[in-house]
Amino acid sequence: MWHMIRIQSGILKGMSLPFVPDPKTRPTTQKVREALLNSLGDAVSMGSFADLFAGSGAVGIEAASRGAREVLLVEKDRKVALPLEQFLKTDRRIQKAGIRLIREDVLSFLEKYEGDPFDIVFLDPPYEYPDWEKLLRCLASSGIVQKKGSIIVLEYFHRDDPSGVVREIFPDHQTKVTSYGESRILFARNVNP
């Protein structure tokens, strides 16, 4: 049975995305999506946005709705990705928004990534994700993160706390953490001139 997730802002405001609920997948709440994108401000509307562990695709699609010039969604779970994939093919407004979906494991995707870097990379793995260090090292060596001006955003369960690993692997990034119930959002901005 599908659930619907509504886009709350921008040119696609009011659009409903199909989503198959799954115990392993926890969509970013509307409140957190809004706070996250508001915090990024103009960086969203002027930049490219990669939503890794995309799930419903709501965060990336909301970024597209707010004017991101390119949005990449990466999701490996076929059951979760299939309704999103069909939706992206059939909705005309979405087709104009420059959104791509890749159905692949994030680590495999990062290991072979050869495209241009993204301005913003958002990672929201399942709660209690066991491989933060491996994921962040893979991210750092992949080329998907820009050397200057990049923003990495992590959403995680409060007990996971990968902030120390982020500071170790991305020493040129200034970090800030905000709390929303059991969720934490970590922003890491490259402050190198």
Rank of each mutant, 00 (worst) to 15 (best):
K112Y: 05
R93G: 11
F87A: 12
V121H: 05
F118H: 04
I151G: 04
D124K: 00
L154S: 10
T90I: 12
P130F: 04
I152D: 10
E114H: 08
E104W: 01
S150F: 12
V153R: 02
V71P: 02
P130M: 06
E114T: 14
L84S: 08
R100C: 04
K89Y: 10
V145E: 12
I151H: 05
F109T: 02
V121G: 03
L135R: 02
L135Q: 00
L136Y: 02
Y129E: 01
G98D: 05
T90H: 15
L107T: 07
P83A: 00
L139D: 08
K76A: 14
K96N: 09
E168N: 14
Q146K: 15
G98M: 06
L73D: 07
I151F: 13
L110D: 01
F109L: 01
Y127W: 13
L135I: 10
K134T: 10
L107A: 06
K134P: 10
P130R: 07
F122N: 00
C138R: 11
Y127P: 06
C138I: 00
P126R: 09
R159E: 14
L73R: 02
D161M: 06
K76H: 15
L82D: 15
I151N: 07
E133K: 12
Q95F: 04
L72I: 11
P117L: 02
I94N: 01
K134A: 13
Q95T: 07
W132F: 05
L139Q: 13
F109K: 07
V121M: 12
Q95D: 01
K89Q: 15
I144G: 05
L88W: 03
R103I: 09
A140I: 04
G164P: 07
V80L: 03
F157L: 15
K148G: 02
K148S: 11
Q95S: 14
H158T: 12
V80T: 15
R92L: 13
L101G: 00
V145G: 05
I99Y: 07
I120N: 05
L154D: 07
L123C: 12
Y127C: 02
L84K: 01
R93P: 04
R78Q: 12
G143M: 13
G115F: 04
D91M: 03
Y156G: 09
S163T: 14
V74E: 01
E85M: 08
K134I: 05
E128H: 12
R93T: 07
P162Y: 03
A140C: 09
D172H: 11
S142H: 07
K76I: 09
E133T: 10
